[in-house]
Amino acid sequence: MKIAFYGSSLVSAYWNGAATYYRGLLRALAEKGYDITFYEPDVYDRQKNRDIDPPEWCRVVVYDGTIDALKTVAARAGEADIVVKASGVGFEDDLLLDEVLRAARPSALKTFWDVDAPATLGELRASPDHPLRQALSAIDLVLTYGGGDPVVNAYRSLGARDCIPIYNALDPMTHHPVAADTRFAADLGFLGNRLPDREARVEHFFLEPAARLPSTNFLLGGSGWSDKPMADNVNYIGHVSTRDHNAFNVTPKAVLNISRASMAENGFSPATRVFEAAGAGACLITDYWEGIELFLKPDEEVLVARDGQDVVDVLAGLTTERAQLIGRKSLDRVLADHTYASRAVTVDAIFRAHAAQRMEAAE
C-alpha cells in the first residue's frame, strides 16, 4: 500500500522532536512492504540543519514554504492508499489538512497523526470552530504519539471515529550502546530544548538540584539555554547533534528525562528520549508521570523522581555499579518490548483492519 505522509521533517531533527518517531515507525513500516512518500516544508532552517540524508526506505519531497507549493504536494495525496496528515507540520497546517482531505481518493484511509496530543486537544477544546475539529468527521482514524485513555476519550468526545495511541519506541539501528565520550562526562546529563512548557520543570528537576549539589557535575545540552542562570557546576554545551545522542546518553553516570508539563499531566506519554536513553544502555532518571510502569519497571529499569529533592536523593545514593545495572536492564526491556518494529506490527494491523472495513462497506 502507498502512504502519503505530510509531517514536519524526516531528514532534520532541528527543532523537530518528532523526527526520531517518524524515522523509527516509517522505516519499520517500509520493511513491512509499505511504499512511503514523506512531504515536508522548507521552514525553520531545518533543511540547513539536516542530520540524515533522504533514506532508501522512503521518498522525501521537500517543498517551498509557499501556498502554491503546498497545494501542489497536497494534490499528490490522490495517489495514495493511506493519507496521513501529522500535527505540527509548521506551515499552514489548517490549509494543508483541508487540501489533503480534498485530494484524497474516497477509498483512501484518511489519518490524522497527532505527535502532541495535549497541545492539540487544548486548542480544539478552546475553539469549537477549529478546522481540525470540524474535519474530524471526515477523518477515518486518529493515531497519537501517546496519551492512553484520557487522549482517546477526549478525541472521541470531539467527534473522532477512532483514536489509537502508538507510543514512542526504540530503533536499535540508530540508538544503541557506544563508547563513552569525555565531552559528555558528568554525574547527571539532561538533553532538551528550552520550551515554555518545559522550562519550569527543568528548573525544578535539574537546575535547582545542581545548585544544591555543588560538588556534583551536571551536563546540559539543547538549544535556547545560553542566557539561563545556572550554577557553576552545570556545563552547558548547546545543541547536540543526533549523531552524538548515544554518546551523550552513555557517558554520564545517569541521564534525566523531564517531560513537558502537558505530557506529564496527561500521563501515558513517554518521550522519545526515554527509549533513546534506554536503547543506549543509560541509567535513566525520569520525572514521574502516570503509566511509566507500562514501559519500564521503576527502581529496576528506571529511576523515578517526583520532585527536585528526589533527584538530589537519587544522585546521592547512586553508585556506578547500580547505574550500570539499571542501564543493562532497561536496554534488555526496550529491545524485548518497545521497538519500532513491534509498533509497526500494531500500525500495520490497524491499517489493514480499516482497509478491510472500507472494502466491506463499498460492496
Rank of each mutant, 00 (worst) to 15 (best):
G159H: 10
A117F: 04
R322F: 06
G33Y: 12
A277Q: 04
S157Y: 07
R333A: 14
G291N: 05
R125D: 15
L158T: 02
A30Y: 01
T242A: 12
V115C: 06
V142C: 10
G308H: 02
G281S: 07
A185Y: 01
K228N: 05
D42K: 08
T66W: 05
P214H: 11
V304I: 13
R125L: 14
D187L: 05
V115A: 11
G189A: 14
V274S: 00
A103N: 03
P172F: 08
P165K: 02
L29C: 04
A271N: 15
F205V: 05
A18R: 04
R198H: 11
M1I: 06
E203C: 04
V274Y: 01
N246G: 05
D227A: 14
G238H: 10
F5N: 04
Y21H: 12
S127Y: 10
V152Y: 10
L284P: 02
L96Q: 06
S259T: 02
P54C: 08
S223H: 03
T174N: 12
D313H: 12
A119H: 08
E56C: 11
R156E: 14
M263S: 13
D64V: 05
T182Y: 03
V62K: 01
D337V: 11
P128I: 10
D310Q: 08
Q309A: 14
N235C: 13
A210L: 09
A80Y: 01
V43L: 07
D332F: 09
D310M: 06
T37S: 11
A126Q: 13
A344M: 00
R194F: 03
A278S: 15
Y44H: 14
D307M: 02
L25M: 11
